[in-house]
């Protein structure tokens, strides 16, 4: 029984780290631009396909690292393109509903486009560790999973440093907290928007490579991560980065423990139950700002 508990917590932490990594870009974009982007998970899908192509001609570790770089770059650019062509024109004459509808449209377009271009056949990304596993008595897992956990944490660490230690990073946070005041500081908001989208989408692209290596790459792979990322974002507080990080881990562990000890059938609903509970007690999410500040 004890070993099952440890195993489930480990499973939850690992999957949670990926949830966090995807949610962090979503929440950043929401924080800065107030855009709920339902196509966010598709950035991961595109990142994973970028990796499929890089690994096709560059196998092994080089291919894998190259994939990460290529996915971040390609999806970052895709993020900027969608921001400029799809979301930017709506920002001034928008209602939130318009933006949500447009992002759902974008989600459908990207998913179907990728099926058209890449085909529906699921692909695998090569595991750089040759699918080696570790059995530690209390739990078993693959080296790849541990690596993904470490990699997500490091990526989030770098993002944290960037947002806290660089002038540009602080400007992104400032813009997300108070857009008008940011304008009065001489921050070029349009530049911040572009950068935020590039960064948020780029991270989702990297998460897509991890997700694709752990699972598989297929056109509809973005839907589930989008859903999870929204749960995480609402849980942690919309636009709150720390909330997204902790929210991801909380959701991951809650799902595995709830699935294991309460009901497997409701594993995917557990996130929503948690959201309802959290929102009853803290209407702005676990880490959300209180009204008025």
């Amino acid at each position: 029984m004890e070993s099952l508990f440890v195993q489930q917590v480990v499973n939850g932490i690992i999957i949670g780290s990926i949830y966090s990594l995807i949610a962090i870009g979503l929440t950043m974009i929401f924080g800065v631009m107030k855009i709920c982007n339902f196509a966010h998970g598709d950035y991961s899908m595109v990142g994973a396909y970028a990796a499929v192509f890089v690994m096709a001609w560059l196998p092994g570790w080089f291919g894998w690292i190259g994939s990460i770089v290529a996915a971040a770059a390609a999806v970052g650019i895709l993020g900027v393109i969608t921001e400029r062509l799809v979301f930017r024109p709506l920002l001034t004459r928008r209602t939130d509903i318009d933006i949500i509808m447009v992002s759902i449209g974008l989600f459908i377009v990207l998913e179907n486009l990728s099926q058209l271009v890449f085909g529906a056949t699921p692909r695998m990304l090569q595991d750089p560790f040759g699918s080696a596993t570790v059995n530690l008595g209390l739990f078993s897992t693959s080296i790849l999973r541990l690596f993904c956990l470490a990699f997500s944490c490091i990526a989030m660490g770098f993002l944290h440093l960037f947002l806290n230690r660089t002038q540009t990073g602080i400007a992104i946070r400032a813009t997300s907290q108070n857009r008008n005041a940011a304008l009065l500081m001489g921050i070029d908001i349009s530049h911040v928007y572009t950068l935020t989208f590039a960064l948020g989408a780029g991270i989702a692209g990297i998460a897509g490579v991890l997700y694709g290596t752990l699972f598989a790459v297929f056109p509809t792979m973005g839907a589930l991560p989008t859903l999870k990322a929204f749960v995480v974002t609402i849980l942690g507080g919309m636009g709150n980065l720390r909330g997204a990080v902790f929210g991801g881990f909380i959701l991951g562990v809650a799902e595995t423990l709830g699935g294991s000890y309460i009901s497997m059938q409701y594993k995917n609903s557990i996130g929503f139950v948690i959201i309802i509970l959290v929102l009853l007690i803290r209407p702005n999410g676990l880490f959300g700002r209180r009204e008025g500040t």
């Binding site: 099952l4 195993q7 489930q8 499973n11 939850g12 690992i14 999957i15 997700y211 752990l214 699972f215 598989a216 509809t220 792979m221 839907a223 589930l224 799902e255 595995t256 699935g259 294991s260 497997m264 594993k267 995917n268």
Partner: peptide, 11 residues
């Protein structure tokens, strides 16, 4: 459409 089955398999 699920991709992570570790919870169930652990059980």
């Amino acid at each position: 459409g699920d991709t992570d089955f570790t919870t169930q398999i652990s059980k």
